[in-house]
Each structure stands twice: as structure tokens, then as C-alpha cells.
């Protein structure tokens, strides 16, 4: 019972259009499913040691071992937790200073040389971010030995990319009018940057640095896995001595530290913006 008489040609066109769309969507879904299946086959089905898992109860009891607490570890936690916090903080500050020249080189409107130094600045930004913090830590452990220092260096190197990239973008987006004014009063290159550019970018840069510090607390918690100090090292030792309660204690300490960092950075960010 047709309530409305549609133009038959338009109707046919609609049916045809919709039919094609169903086919297209079906093909896309098929492709997605095939891709996931291929990945699962490669990584899980072929790559897992199924005989070691040994049934549902085995998995559960393995995980269950971590549900105990080794309270005796408490006094030993204090120093590494503090060390993790310090590593993150010093690493962020160092990263900040290293970011200054990189941002300067990598901002198209202030770079001293567009042909050589600008690409160099951009390359350093990518390099810093594309190498994982654990890889940076491995490099520095082999260079300066075990302890917190390689961790700090690794965190600094890893921080440069993000801080300098955001800063460079902020520099590229500044309003050039105050810059013109400082040039007109006879200001030096430094004064132009310090009075004309910096006041415009510092809220963005500061917010970025706080964010990066927050992330760096997480990063420094795992630095110890490769021998670069902090809670990670303690975690590694508990794991090696099969002290599952101790492992849980370390994880809780990391959680505690991250929550503290989250709270501090929340209030810092509010104060800045």
C-alpha cells in the first residue's frame, strides 16, 4: 500500500545506491576480520607455549600469588620511591633546558638557518621521541653505569622531543606585533625573544612541562628494569627472588607515587592556566 507515489526512476536509483553500499560495507568488514585473524594466528596461536599454561586453574593460581602483601618490604620502599620521584623531576628539568635550543632551531620563524639548522632541530625532536625511554636508559647504563644518573639522562632525552615540539609550534604561532615593537625600540636579538616571544609562549610551555613531568614519573618507575635505579630495580629483584608479595608492594608504591604526581600536577596546571 503505497501512501506516497515515488518517482520510479528515483526509487530505482536509491535501491541501487543502497545495494552498492551494503556490498562495500560487507567487504570492509571482511577485510578487517581477515586482518585481525591473521594477526591473532601469528601472535597468539602459533607463538604461545600452550603446554606451560596448563589449564584454567594454573593461570588463576599463578595470578593469585600476587594477591599477598609483603609488609616487611615497607621500610625498603621509601628510598627507591623517593629516588623515582627525584629522577623524574631532575630529568624533566634537564629535558627542559635541552629543549630550549632544539625549539629555537626547530621553529621556522626564528631558526637561525632554514636550510641546515631547522631540519636538524626537527630531526632531534623526532629522534628523542622515536627512541623508547627503556632504550635510552640501556644506552646510558652502558655509557655511565648503573644508578639513577642514566635514568635521569634517559628521561631528559625522552622529554626533549615533546617539550621542544610543542614549544616550537607555540613560537610559530605567536603574534608578531610585540616582536616588531621590541625591534623598533632597538632591542637585541635576545631581548626580542625574551620580551616579544617568551611571554606569549610560556603558559603553553609550562603546561607542557608539567604534563611531561607527570608522564616522567611513570617512566622513571620502570627505569630500574634495566638497572637505572628507582622502584623498577626493586621490582626486578622481588621478581627474581619469586617474592610475589613484594612485587605487589612495589606495584602499589608505583601506584601511590603516580597518584601523588597526578594530584600535584593537577594543582600546578590550575595555578599556571
Amino acid at each position: 500500500m503505497a501512501v506516497i507515489d515515488a518517482n520510479p526512476a528515483a526509487l530505482d536509483q536509491q535501491y541501487e545506491l543502497r545495494r552498492r553500499r551494503y556490498v562495500k560495507m560487507g567487504l570492509i568488514w571482511l577485510a578487517v576480520i581477515a586482518f585481525v585473524a591473521w594477526c591473532v594466528n601469528g601472535t597468539i596461536i602459533e607463538d604461545t607455549d600452550w603446554s606451560r599454561i596448563g589449564g584454567r586453574s594454573g593461570v588463576l593460581s599463578s595470578i593469585g600469588r600476587y594477591l599477598s602483601l609483603d609488609l616487611g618490604l615497607l621500610p625498603e620502599l621509601l628510598i627507591p620511591t623517593l629516588e623515582t620521584f627525584m629522577m623524574a623531576s631532575v630529568g624533566t628539568v634537564l629535558g627542559c633546558f635541552l629543549s630550549l635550543p632544539v625549539a629555537w632551531l626547530g621553529a621556522a620563524n626564528v631558526t637561525p638557518s632554514k636550510t641546515i639548522l631547522y631540519p636538524l632541530g626537527r630531526f632531534l625532536m623526532v629522534l628523542s621521541r622515536s627512541v623508547h625511554e627503556i632504550v635510552w636508559a640501556l644506552l646510558f647504563v652502558s655509557a655511565v653505569g648503573l644508578g639513577a644518573l642514566p635514568g635521569i639522562l634517559a628521561i631528559a632525552m625522552r622529554s626533549v622531543g615533546f617539550i621542544s615540539k610543542i614549544s616550537a609550534e607555540a613560537i610559530e604561532n605567536i603574534d608578531t606585533k610585540p616582536v616588531e615593537a621590541i625591534r623598533a625600540v632597538g632591542g637585541s636579538q635576545f631581548q626580542v625573544m625574551y620580551y616579544g616571544i617568551l611571554p606569549q609562549i610560556y603558559p603553553v610551555v609550562l603546561a607542557t612541562v608539567i604534563f611531561e613531568w607527570d608522564i616522567n614519573i611513570r617512566r622513571s618507575a620502570v627505569m630500574g628494569l634495566v638497572g637505572a635505579g628507582g622502584l623498577g630495580l626493586l621490582f626486578f629483584r622481588q621478581m627474581n627472588s619469586f617474592n610475589y608479595g613484594g612485587v605487589t608492594m612495589v606495584i602499589l608504591a608505583i601506584l601511590f607515587l603516580i597518584i601523588i604526581g597526578e594530584i600535584i600536577s593537577h594543582y600546578l596546571r590550575k595555578a599556571v592556566i
Binding site: 615593537a181 616579544g196 603558559p203
Partner: peptide, 13 residues
């Protein structure tokens, strides 16, 4: 001394 159309002040100072 230069005086500008849009003042060219440093806003955050």
C-alpha cells in the same frame, strides 16, 4: 619612538 595601529603591547606583562 614608534606608536602602532594595534598598540603592539606585550599582553602578559
Amino acid at each position: 619612538g614608534m606608536i602602532f595601529q594595534e598598540f603592539n603591547l606585550i599582553n602578559r606583562m
